Every structure is written in structure tokens, then in C-alpha cells.
Amino acid sequence: EPSQADLDALLSAVRDNRLSIEQAVTLLTPSSGGGSGGGSMDAKEILTRFKDGGLDRAAAQALLAGRTPA
């Protein structure tokens, strides 16, 4: 399960175009075949909204942490 520091680094990389959204989703869902963790939004949607400015960093982190299976 990614830590808050991992999520923060991942969000920074996506925002700075050092990591594509697809690459980030793969890192967030290493063994689930890329499927959502059952959250209301999947990781790709969360990351896309964050990059487009629709979500701030704290909200994106909380959503990603919340949808990651324990």
C-alpha cells in the first residue's frame, strides 16, 4: 500500500509530466490488473482531475489513499 510520501511523489511526477497518468495508475495498482479498488473514482480519473486542476493535492491524495486496498 502506498504511503502518503509515495502518493505525494507520484502526484508531483504526474503534474510535472515526469510520469504519465497510465504509468501512475500501473504503479498504484500493481497486482489488481489495473482495476479500481472499488472506490467511487478510479485512480486514472483522480489523477486526470488532479492534473487538470479539478482536484487539489490533498484531495487527490485522500482519494487515492482511500481507494487503495489495505
Rank of each mutant, 00 (worst) to 15 (best):
49 R>M: 09
55 L>M: 06
47 L>C: 01
16 D>C: 10
28 L>V: 04
32 S>D: 13
5 A>D: 08
25 V>P: 00
24 A>C: 05
20 S>C: 03
10 L>V: 11
28 L>D: 01
50 F>A: 01
6 D>M: 13
61 Q>G: 05
3 S>R: 08
3 S>M: 08
37 G>I: 14
62 A>V: 07
64 L>V: 02
4 Q>H: 15
1 E>L: 14
56 D>E: 07
27 L>S: 04
68 T>F: 15
21 I>V: 07
1 E>H: 11
2 P>S: 11
33 G>S: 11
53 G>K: 04
42 D>G: 07
62 A>C: 14
47 L>W: 01
56 D>I: 03
20 S>W: 02
16 D>P: 00
69 P>V: 11
9 A>L: 09
8 D>T: 07
5 A>S: 09
12 S>P: 01
38 G>Q: 11
22 E>T: 05
33 G>F: 13
40 S>H: 12
47 L>H: 00
33 G>R: 06
12 S>N: 09
64 L>T: 01
53 G>S: 03
64 L>M: 03
66 G>N: 11
18 R>I: 13
31 S>H: 11
38 G>R: 09
23 Q>F: 07
64 L>R: 01
14 V>L: 07
58 A>T: 07
34 G>T: 12
4 Q>D: 12
24 A>E: 00
25 V>S: 04
36 S>V: 12
13 A>P: 00
63 L>Y: 04
16 D>V: 04
22 E>K: 05
21 I>G: 01
57 R>M: 14
56 D>L: 05
23 Q>G: 05
67 R>S: 06
22 E>G: 05
34 G>Q: 09
68 T>Q: 14
13 A>M: 13
23 Q>D: 11
24 A>H: 01
54 G>N: 15
48 T>F: 04
7 L>I: 11
29 T>S: 13
22 E>Y: 05
42 D>V: 06
66 G>R: 08
22 E>A: 08
57 R>N: 05
20 S>F: 02
53 G>E: 03
22 E>H: 05
54 G>H: 13
6 D>V: 10
9 A>M: 12
50 F>V: 02
62 A>D: 07
40 S>F: 14
32 S>T: 13
22 E>C: 07
3 S>H: 09
46 I>C: 02
12 S>W: 05
65 A>R: 14
57 R>D: 04
35 G>F: 05
34 G>K: 09
32 S>M: 13
30 P>L: 15
1 E>W: 14
27 L>I: 10
17 N>Y: 03
15 R>W: 14
19 L>F: 04
21 I>D: 00
44 K>W: 14
34 G>F: 04
39 G>R: 07
33 G>A: 08
44 K>D: 03
17 N>K: 08
27 L>A: 05
17 N>G: 15
33 G>M: 11
64 L>Q: 01
28 L>C: 04
40 S>C: 12
59 A>F: 05
39 G>V: 10
61 Q>I: 15
37 G>L: 12
28 L>T: 02
25 V>G: 02
51 K>P: 01
37 G>C: 13
66 G>D: 08
50 F>M: 02
69 P>Y: 02
10 L>N: 00
60 A>I: 03
39 G>K: 08
28 L>P: 01
32 S>L: 13
26 T>I: 14
9 A>H: 07
38 G>C: 15
30 P>C: 14
40 S>I: 11
4 Q>N: 14
6 D>H: 13
28 L>S: 02
30 P>G: 15
69 P>C: 10
10 L>W: 04
13 A>E: 03
61 Q>Y: 13
67 R>N: 11
9 A>F: 10
29 T>V: 12
63 L>T: 02
46 I>L: 03
24 A>P: 00
48 T>Y: 05
13 A>F: 05
51 K>S: 03
36 S>R: 07
43 A>L: 15
2 P>L: 15
4 Q>R: 10
54 G>F: 12
43 A>M: 12
70 A>K: 06
68 T>I: 12
36 S>N: 11
8 D>K: 06
37 G>V: 12
47 L>T: 00
3 S>P: 10
5 A>Q: 12
28 L>I: 06
20 S>G: 04
70 A>Q: 04
62 A>M: 11
20 S>E: 03
43 A>Q: 05
40 S>A: 12
41 M>R: 05
46 I>R: 00
19 L>Q: 02
36 S>L: 11
27 L>G: 02
11 L>I: 03
24 A>Q: 00
33 G>C: 14
42 D>A: 08
27 L>Y: 12
45 E>I: 07
32 S>F: 12
43 A>D: 04
21 I>T: 02
54 G>I: 13
1 E>S: 14
48 T>H: 05
27 L>C: 06
61 Q>S: 14
44 K>Q: 09
68 T>P: 12
67 R>F: 13
65 A>C: 08
16 D>G: 06
40 S>N: 14
12 S>M: 08
2 P>F: 15
52 D>K: 10
55 L>P: 00
52 D>A: 14
57 R>K: 14
10 L>Q: 00
27 L>H: 04
50 F>W: 15
10 L>C: 02
61 Q>C: 11
31 S>I: 14
64 L>N: 01
60 A>P: 00
13 A>N: 04
43 A>S: 06
25 V>Y: 05
56 D>K: 04
50 F>C: 01
57 R>V: 06
9 A>T: 08
45 E>Y: 05
55 L>T: 02
64 L>S: 00
38 G>K: 11
17 N>P: 01
27 L>V: 04
44 K>T: 09
67 R>T: 11
43 A>N: 05
23 Q>A: 10
1 E>T: 13
47 L>R: 00
60 A>C: 05
48 T>A: 06
67 R>W: 12
66 G>S: 08
24 A>K: 00
64 L>A: 01
38 G>M: 15
14 V>Q: 00
64 L>G: 01
49 R>V: 04
24 A>N: 00
2 P>K: 12
6 D>L: 15
56 D>N: 07
26 T>C: 15
26 T>W: 10
67 R>L: 06
2 P>E: 11
10 L>E: 00
13 A>C: 06
28 L>R: 01
32 S>N: 14
